[in-house]
Simulated scan of single mutants.
Amino acid sequence: MMLALALGTDPALAETTLERIGRTGEVRIGYAPEVPFAFRTSDGQLSGIGPALARRVFARMDVRTVRTVESEFGALLRELKAGRFDVVAVGMFILPERCRQVIFSEPAFQAGTGFAVRPGNPRGLHSFEDVARDGSVRLGAVAGAVELDYARASGVTEEQLVIFPDAATAAAGVKAGRVDAYAAMALTVQSLVQRNPRQLERAEPFRNPTVRGRTSLEHGAYAFRPEDEDLRDAFNRHLAELLRTPEYLDLVAPFGLTRENLPDRTTAQLCAPSP
């Protein structure tokens, strides 16, 4: 405080993130590579559900420049709070433990879970419980992903889990036989299978788990720093408008989302502790 007074500045008058974005017309979004949520196209452009919706919402806020910052999924919240970027734009699931660290927008979509396996699903894996029943099975997941919680709650041991930094590395682990399955959002699994049809298969049927009374049909949203409520609230207003228009489905359809993926719960409901 004394330093601020000596420099002639008042902390109460410090520029907020929303004010800075409004003044500069520029916002920084953080992402971790995972098809179809955030990925680079062959020409180097960042695409995916998270960036596509973020760009459209910020355009409605008259923010025309969107800077992108790549990170590992497990580091996204830490780097958001450290100020490396202004919003996490990968469609991160809203979970009570994450709500204690950051604030979320209202949900932008909902999606389930799946397994990527080798062709023929040689270990016969159709659920996390199937993995837990056989201690020789190895299951891959990305660091910080909710699928790790599903696995542990279903009885999968730490010795069975192999942690990868990103989806591409996890998929390579399945193809090389390092793990027997890779657990991820069903949309991610489907995209990986489409890109590697001779080396990967989607485990079907697949039984989504229910953990602590919560279905694994989770809701993805955008994460903000707790002190940036005004930015989150402005983003929410424009996101809500977008969700009510045909434009939303036009935006997300190329990434595999349909009307069935429209959110049906609120952030307040999703942040509430499980009973």
Rank of each mutant, 00 (worst) to 15 (best):
G30K: 00
G83K: 03
T215I: 08
A272F: 09
V63H: 01
L53C: 02
L243Y: 01
D230M: 10
E129C: 12
V162D: 04
D228G: 05
V179Y: 06
A89E: 08
P263A: 08
G25H: 11
L262N: 10
A223D: 15
P209A: 02
Y182V: 06
A132D: 11
L13N: 08
S216A: 15
E15G: 15
P107V: 07
F58M: 12
T210I: 12
P263F: 06
V90A: 00
Y222Q: 01
F37P: 04
D228N: 13
I49D: 02
H219M: 14
R198Y: 13
A12Q: 08
R212L: 15
R244E: 13
P263C: 07
R265P: 02
C99K: 04
P122F: 06
A4I: 00
D10T: 09
V162N: 06
L125K: 03
L262H: 08
E97I: 06
A221D: 14
G22L: 11
A59D: 15
R259C: 12
M185H: 14
A183F: 04
I49V: 12
Y182S: 02
L3N: 14
E204N: 03
E34C: 03
G124I: 05
S42G: 07
L239H: 01
F73Y: 09
E19S: 11
P33E: 08
R207P: 03
F109V: 02
V174Q: 03
V252E: 11
R212N: 15
D264P: 11
L139C: 12
A14R: 06
P246W: 06
A184E: 09
R23M: 05
E72F: 09
L239E: 04
R265K: 15
A82Y: 07
G48E: 02
F85E: 04
K81W: 13
A111D: 10
K81N: 11
F109N: 08
T188A: 05
L5C: 10
G83S: 14
G25P: 13
R55H: 05
P263N: 13
T65I: 07
P165M: 04
E227K: 00
V193W: 04
A52V: 07
F206D: 13
E72A: 13
R225D: 11
L46Q: 05
R123I: 12
T188N: 09
P197M: 13
L80Y: 05
G155F: 06
V179I: 14
A38P: 00
N196L: 01
M1N: 10
E260F: 14
P11Y: 02
C99Y: 00
V35T: 12
N121I: 12
G144H: 10
D250I: 01
M1T: 04
P36W: 00
R98Q: 09
L125D: 12
